[in-house]
Write a protein that binds this DNA or RNA. Structure first.
Length: 271
DNA sequence: CAGAATACCTGCGGGC
DNA sequence: TGCCCGCAGGTATTCT
């Protein structure tokens, strides 16, 4: 579920509770996530202090003086901070315990998430080294996007969802950004004009910033670190609205699949 | 090489 | 009520 705004919301929510705090205890109830959690994760983590908490793409990076804990929320993951003991539910796979009964609890019904440890530099880790620029950084510019779209036949929607091109843009925000930029999601990337590219970059940045401000998008089960939903879903103009009228022109919104992902668009507003 | 399909896993809603 | 199907916020891996 989580795209960049949801991961960023999670980071901001948990950071005050765990920064410069020492891990006292680690409980793993289910090791089998996207990849197995390292079997010796307890002995690695216990006693280490979280020196920095960062986000790269949709990965959360818990940096210690010795190495980095890499956490990905997958499709259905979320993290909550508990300030008092609470019995775990079915999909509460991991607890990290800190002083004063602070518990970081990772929940992930579908188990597409990941919890890994590395002592490499983050830029050399296999999962992270081929990632494209962060969409909110200046490296994600019109000049950059327009340049890498040359000769690419991939539909623009798939193109901006490919984390080699730009990270953090998932199905919700790709769908919404293309509506706002009035671009048809199937348009081959190479056919996007310089003007469209400029607008698209601007809109991706805007929508991600606004979604972060609203605490992310809760469709079904995303919750922030306090267990509360995000409120960006109130701003969605097309995602999840197939068969309903376009908010701009009233035409019934259509949907189809691009790269196995449902895509909603307005045949009147997007070209 | 690019681009598309597949795989991982659980839960939910709709149709019968 | 229950079964079967399709669908869901991601992305590495495998295919054509």
């Amino acid at each position: 579920m989580p795209e960049l705004p949801e991961v960023e919301t999670t980071l901001r929510g948990i950071e005050p509770y765990i920064l410069n705090k020492k891990i006292k205890k680690v409980i793993i109830r289910h090791y089998q996530l996207r990849w197995p959690i390292p079997h010796n994760i307890q002995e690695i983590l216990v006693g280490k202090t979280i020196k920095r908490l960062e986000r790269r793409a949709k990965y959360l990076l818990f940096k210690t003086s010795k190495g980095t804990l890499i956490l990905h929320l997958g499709m259905s993951g979320s993290i909550r901070i508990l300030t008092e003991p609470c019995l775990p539910n079915k999909h509460d796979h991991v607890d990290l315990e800190f002083p004063n009964n602070i518990i970081l609890r990772f929940t992930d019904p579908r188990r597409f998430g990941a919890l890994l440890w590395t002592e490499d530099t983050i830029t050399s880790h296999p999962l992270l080294k081929h990632l494209g620029p962060e969409p909110l950084e200046k490296e994600f510019s019109n000049a950059y996007l327009h340049q890498i779209m040359q000769n690419k036949n991939t539909p623009i929607k798939s193109f901006i969802m490919d984390n080699k091109n730009v990270v953090g843009v998932g199905n919700i925000y790709a769908t919404e950004a293309l509506f706002l930029a009035k671009i048809h999601p199937k348009t081959p990337a190479k056919n996007i004009s310089s003007q469209q590219s400029t607008l698209l970059v601007k809109i991706i940045k805007q929508i991600l910033r606004l979604a972060i401000k609203k605490g992310g998008t809760t469709l079904k089960d995303f919750v922030n670190s306090k267990g509360n939903p995000g409120y960006f879903s109130q701003h969605l103009k097309v995602y999840g609205r197939a068969g309903e009228p376009c908010l701009e022109c009233n035409l019934i919104l259509d949907s189809f699949k691009i790269g196995q992902r449902s895509t909603v668009y307005c045949g009147n507003c997007q070209h």
